[in-house]
């Protein structure tokens, strides 16, 4: 049951769900959540490869990558939400279709 195939399928499903959310949703907060879903999917793939390809050394490189990804995800969430809140304060919207002030 706990095989590499199943774990990779699960991570692919999480990643595809995140892609759907990013493309199809208009609320920028849902887009941020979907990005977190995609990052989690990739992390599941990393951890399952660390489980099923232990490598020669004892240090699990997959786990190290996952921790670095978590740091980047935390930074991304903080900056993304700061931008969303600053935008909402100025324009009163969280709709991605309204965010076109850089387009003429």
């Amino acid at each position: 049951m706990l095989t590499l195939h199943n774990c990779l399928l699960l991570s692919a499903l999480l990643f595809a769900t995140g892609v759907f959310g990013v493309i199809a949703r208009r609320n920028v907060l849902i887009v941020l959540m979907s990005i977190e879903l995609m990052l989690n999917g990739v992390n599941v793939a990393f951890v399952s490869f660390a489980k099923f390809y232990p490598g020669s050394s004892l240090a699990p490189a997959g786990h190290v990558f996952v921790l670095l990804t978590m740091a980047v995800a935390a930074a991304e969430a903080a900056v993304g939400l700061a931008i969303v809140i600053a935008w909402f304060r100025n324009r009163k919207t969280t709709d991605t279709d309204d965010m076109r002030s850089l387009r003429w």
Binding site: A16, T17, V19, F20, G21, V22, I23, A24, R25, R26, N27, I30, T93, T94, D95, D97, D98
Partner: peptide, 16 residues
């Protein structure tokens, strides 16, 4: 409040 989906078919196609 602005929680619509824009292009669910394209999104589902690419995700699939």
């Amino acid at each position: 409040l602005s929680n619509e989906t824009t292009n669910p078919i394209i999104g589902a196609a690419i995700a699939g």
